[in-house]
């Protein structure tokens, strides 16, 4: 795995919409934030993260989100301990592992959704393009706009399809020349436009589960994020809807950095470039803590994992 040569290109935000002039795009994060140090991504990950297969090694690997010694507490309970990871630009990274291993908890740190839970606390650092996400002067709203999220259960607002997509640009106070164009573009990118273009004013709740989830992706895209977090996005969908979402994820990876939590190992194998395997350790007091076992190229995790626990999980011996 090679690194960019010290001049990382600006994140994808400004080039998300090819016709980006329609929206007053926020200033590029590269200008507003500290640039990531080139040597960080490699050194931070667990020992095996540097290993790669030949095909991917050629592609530049720029880290968008990096965690170091990340621990998450709920009150005094340490749900996740000391996770070191990095997430490459325009990659799909899957986080897999048994229930209760803390993968969703970690995911929710990246856009500070854990702030909404009373008693949740984070130790260690998470950097986004080199900037500390949990620094005291960070605006959570700005973080959440750049790091979008799609939830396990489709959660469209009880509004029209149009208003769902327009919600983000509206609450962010953007002056857009044509909201219609923004809505159409976001829905098109989410592969939903053809199905809903004649009923934009109808309630989003009349859509099927898979359509609702794609609407939630469109809603997320409409605020022009850089990273999209997906927390088991297909858990409540049937196989056909799931395959549509997976196809969509592959397309979106051209422009976005995607991090997906999934219980479905086949899904991780199908869609992701890199895979992080989490497990739950029981400490001497009998308390379970989630921790990262290894993170590597998906192909390697599924064919030749470094850790026997990963192999055990993937081959179905536990979890």
């Amino acid at each position: 795995m090679s690194d960019p040569n010290g001049s990382p290109s600006p994140p994808a935000t400004s080039s998300v919409f090819t016709t980006g002039t329609r929206i007053r795009v926020h200033e590029s994060p590269a200008g507003a934030m500290t640039e990531s140090t080139p040597d960080q991504p490699v050194s931070v990950a667990s020992a095996s993260a540097g290993v790669s297969d030949g095909e991917d090694a050629d592609r530049a690997y720029e880290s968008v989100i990096t965690t170091r010694d990340l621990s998450v507490f709920y009150g005094s309970y340490q749900a996740v301990r000391e996770v070191d990871m990095n997430f490459g630009k325009n990659r799909i990274t899957a986080m897999i592992g048994p229930s209760g291993c803390g993968k969703s908890t970690v995911l929710r740190c990246f856009n500070r959704m854990n702030d909404l839970i009373a008693g949740a606390r984070v130790e260690g650092t998470i950097t986004y393009h080199g900037q500390d996400v949990y620094a005291p002067d960070v605006d959570t709203i700005e973080v959440r706009r750049r790091v979008g999220m799609v939830f396990q259960k489709p959660n469209p607002f009880p509004k029209s399809i149009y208003d769902n997509v327009a919600y983000g640009p509206r609450v962010n106070g953007w002056k857009v020349q044509s909201m219609d164009d923004v809505v159409e573009e976001a829905l098109t990118r989410a592969a939903l436009w053809d199905e809903v273009k004649d009923k934009l004013k109808e309630s989003a709740l009349a859509l099927s589960g898979g359509q609702q989830q794609r609407l939630c992706i469109a809603r997320c895209i409409a605020v022009q994020p850089d990273v999209i977090l997906m927390d088991e996005p297909c858990a409540s969908l049937d196989p056909i809807a799931t395959s549509k979402i997976e196809d969509l994820m592959r397309e979106l990876a051209d422009d976005y950095t995607i991090i997906i939590v999934t219980h479905n190992m086949q899904q991780a194998a199908r869609v992701s470039d890199r895979t992080a395997f989490f497990t739950a350790d029981v400490d001497d007091d009998g308390v379970r803590h989630g921790r990262l076992v290894e993170m590597d190229w998906t192909k390697k995790i599924f064919t030749n994992p470094s850790d026997p626990r990963t192999e055990g999980y993937i081959s179905g011996r536990f979890g």
């Binding site: 909404l116 709203i141 959660n155 919600y167 609450v171």
Partner: peptide
Amino acid sequence: GLRQGAFALGSNRRQVSTRV
């Protein structure tokens, strides 16, 4: 889930309350 969805889109608490 509706509140979380709204927060995740960059809403502040007032917007979550009044718009969702």
